[in-house]
């Protein structure tokens, strides 16, 4: 953050969350880290075809919101959606099986890595057309307001997504109607292989546009789980009591490439090193130890997570292929794909 931004950014990170919450944040981030690393491994082993987009390095954002959201709130994510799916409490095994294209997958293999959805967990979808889900998330917020349900819609997207029209249309809609929605821009500095600064008129792709929609300028350290949890609570509460939308720009960095096995060579070595030093998880671990948490507690969390990811991987591998009976099913609400008599 530059001096200028610090001055205008919302101050976060004052009172630390309760210890149980912090341990939960640590567990959530650990889950995302171990899960995504495993996904990378099985992709390289050829068990996952097509593509994957990992959130390695960006875990604090999904963890902070996952911790703060009410179970009936809604998540809308992009193709980089594994972390947001896990953080809503969707079990590892069906996610893993979906990536592998198995019957036991979250969508029985019909969606794949870029479209993880679990409506029963409030995970309302991962969308692979940049920006499209922002108006859709806005529609869910419209429905919450119309039905006075107190639910909040949370929409995650990248820095690059702030340059597509749907983002601007949806922000204006949400602001005009004061909808209960939180827009979360995960600014990882790159849209695919191009630096966001090279293609954007303002320094902060989301925060610098907030004023255009009458919204507060919010920049937060997206690698700090406590800060993310705090801003999540603040913006969710605001939305829930009728205070309207918020737009958060969370500064972060992806450790892996954009997708698949991309080595990310377009990024300067010093930049990568500086951000690895800001890795959200070891830093948070240290913070907890400094706060007096016994290391054995953290060790145990890590061990438990590693075991459950191992078990999930085996379960997914054991799941059979989807089965051809699914091909013509579920285009329509009657379960068929019939278009003529």
């Amino acid at each position: 953050m530059t001096e200028d931004n610090t001055a205008t950014a919302t101050v976060v990170g004052e009172g630390a969350p309760q210890l149980t919450t912090r341990l939960s944040l640590f567990r959530r981030m650990t889950e995302l880290r171990v899960f995504e690393k495993r996904v990378y491994d099985i992709f390289l082993q050829g068990l996952v075809k097509g593509t994957t987009h990992l959130s390695l390095g960006q875990e604090a954002i999904a963890a902070g919101f996952g911790e703060a959201m009410r179970s009936d709130d809604w998540t809308f994510a992009t193709y980089r959606g594994h972390a947001h799916t896990v953080s809503r409490g969707v079990p590892f095994a069906p996610i893993m099986a979906e990536l592998m294209g198995r019957r036991g997958g979250l969508m029985a293999g019909k969606g794949g890595s870029m479209h993880l959805t679990s409506v029963e967990h409030g995970m309302m979808g991962s969308y692979a057309i940049v920006g499209a889900h922002i108006p859709i998330a806005t529609g869910a917020a419209f429905s919450a307001k119309y039905r006075k349900s107190g639910q909040v819609s949370v929409c995650f997207f990248g820095d690059g997504t702030t340059n597509i029209g749907a983002f601007h249309e949806a922000l204006n809609f949400a602001a005009v109607w004061k909808l209960p929605i939180v827009f979360v821009c995960e600014n990882n500095l790159y849209m695919e292989y191009t630096a966001i600064s090279a293609v954007t008129a303002v320094e902060h792709p989301a925060a610098d546009r907030a004023g255009a929609y009458g919204l507060e300028r919010i920049i937060v350290d997206g690698n700090d789980a406590d800060a993310m949890y705090e801003i999540a609570n603040k913006t969710l509460d605001r939305a829930r009591v009728g205070g309207g939308p918020s737009l958060i720009e969370a500064l972060t960095y992806r450790h892996a490439g954009h997708s698949r096995a991309d080595p990310g060579k377009y990024r300067p070595d010093e930049e990568v090193a500086a951000w690895i030093a800001k890795d959200p998880i070891p830093n948070y671990r240290k913070r907890l130890l400094d706060a007096g948490v016994d290391e054995s507690v953290l060790d145990r969390i890590e061990k438990e997570v590693a075991e459950s990811v191992d078990i999930a991987t085996e379960l997914a591998k054991a799941s059979p292929p989807p089965g051809e009976d699914l091909i013509l099913k579920d285009l329509w609400s009657d379960g068929s794909s019939t278009w003529r008599n």
Binding site: S143, R147, Q151, F173
Partner: peptide, 20 residues
Amino acid sequence: TPISEQAILGTIMGAAMTGL
């Protein structure tokens, strides 16, 4: 609505998937 056809259709889609 404003002149925002993507937002119009996105809104009805999000509303439809959540009970309207």
